[in-house]
Design a protein around this nucleic acid. Structure first.
Lengths: 188, 188
DNA sequence: GTCTATAGACCGATAGAC
DNA sequence: GTCTATCGGTCTATAGAC
């Protein structure tokens, strides 16, 4: 027997993971189009042809790099929903997974990313809608709420707007809590 | 004398305007990177080399195509500011100028567009801040407000989120009015 | 003044040597 | 299995014919 503590399969998985991490980082920084296979390979310390060998095509690499299951809100009333959304936002503001950032970065210029984000946001809107059945026009309220939170995330994580850049998540959450509450409130 | 009702200079300006219109539309649809000089020329019915002749470089064409002076809010108290922002949003939801859409479409993947949008939003945030001096943490409140409205505009105009896509501006404005009001409200 | 032709650079993907 | 070499394609930009 030879001495490699790591089998071939293990080394392959490790290399694959390193490539995926580099891809995630570059896709999140530059978006789909401006990220090249060559740059990903260089960042991962491997040969460009190896990336193609492992993932087949650039599109497949992107798909693998950004796959993440977004958790949906499960609250059943408006107050619990507010807390849940704000908690999620707070976590988001503390640093979103790079795969999600990569998807968001590309959503305005890459049709495939746009479709996937649209689907994810639609599911999120449906979940929020279900959590405030007593409100008037719940679908529209939910869509506006989700879009607004998306905008805040974009301003903070992708655009780096000065006042948001240095703000702690707690302060942000504290300020928007009443606004979110007014959107989820019933119309009684 | 010859009969051309349009002088050479006039025809040149007309051609330039047609190229700019095509560029604006394509930049708004596909973003900076995926829009080619060839496609712009083809849409405008001119030769690609002519586009270069007129505008020098693709970057200059983009700059010329997206230049727009964003109007800043001039309200001096929170209530007037709310009305002003909602009116602006309503107009935006009715259809933003293509130059603005082009800039927004590219802001996440093109560094130059990102800088310009960041600057414009920063100015807007400063104007909003000035309009609610009585509020606590006015800069942060203003930044959150502007980002949230940006998100709604993105969801509606660039992503086409289903529930927003068919909604009239009036209904949207009616729903978010209390939320905006709660953000601009003083902390007394 | 306008268009043809092409230079020059970069990319994704592939074939084949090792 | 991994890398070298390269193909075929696209693009911006330029030079020169007309």
């Amino acid at each position: 027997m030879s001495m490699p503590h790591r089998s071939r399969a293990e080394r392959r998985r490790a290399t694959e993971a390193r490539i995926l991490a580099s891809a995630r980082r570059l896709f999140a920084e530059k978006g789909y189009e401006r990220t090249t296979i060559r740059a990903v390979a260089s960042a991962a310390g491997v040969d460009p042809a190896l990336v193609m060998q492992y993932f087949g095509a650039k599109r497949d690499l992107f798909t693998r790099a950004v796959q993440a299951v977004p958790e949906l809100p499960t609250a059943s009333d408006a107050d619990a929903l507010t807390d849940q959304l704000l908690t999620t936002l707070g976590l988001k503001l503390g640093g979103l997974p790079e795969g999600v950032l990569a998807m968001m970065r590309s959503m305005l210029t890459d049709p495939a990313a746009a479709d996937q984000v649209r689907d994810a946001l639609t599911r999120q809107i449906e979940a929020v809608t279900a959590a405030m059945p007593a409100a008037e026009d719940p679908e529209l309220r939910a869509a506006l709420l989700v879009s607004a939170l998306l905008g805040i995330t974009i301003g903070h994580q992708l655009l780096g707007l000065p006042p948001l850049r240095g703000a702690e998540a707690d302060r942000i959450v504290g300020i928007i809590r009443p606004a979110v509450k007014s959107l989820t409130a019933s119309a009684d």
